[in-house]
Amino acid sequence: MLLIHCPYCEETLPEAEFAYAGEAHIDRPADPSALSDEEWRDYLFIRSNVKGPHFERWRHVHGCARFFNAVRDTVSDKFMTTYKAGDPRPDLTAEEAAQ
C-alpha cells in the first residue's frame, strides 16, 4: 500500500484513502466539436504510459475528496511530488538529482 501526500490536507496517508484517476495534464478541449476524429481520439485514449516519472491524478476520495496531481516513478512506484490541481507541471530536476 502506497503512502500518498495530499497537497490539500497536507498529510501523508495510506493509499486506501485515495483513488487513482489516470494521467494528468490532459485538458478537455475547449471546443471538442472543432477537433478532428484523430485529435479527439488522442484526448480520449492516447496515454504516455511512461516508464519513469509519470504525471498523474489522484483523488483523496475518503478524505477531502479533492483531485490533485502527482509525479510518481512507475518503475519504483515512489512519489516524487504531489501538487494541487491547476498548478503547473513541477520542475523535476531537483527530485531527479536527489534520486
Binding site: A21, V61, A65, R66, F67, A85
Partner: peptide, 13 residues
C-alpha cells in the same frame, strides 16, 4: 458523483 466532481474540480473550476 465521482465523474461530476472530476469535471467540476479539474475541468470547470
Amino acid at each position: 458523483l465521482n465523474m461530476m466532481e472530476d469535471y467540476l474540480q479539474t475541468e470547470w473550476p
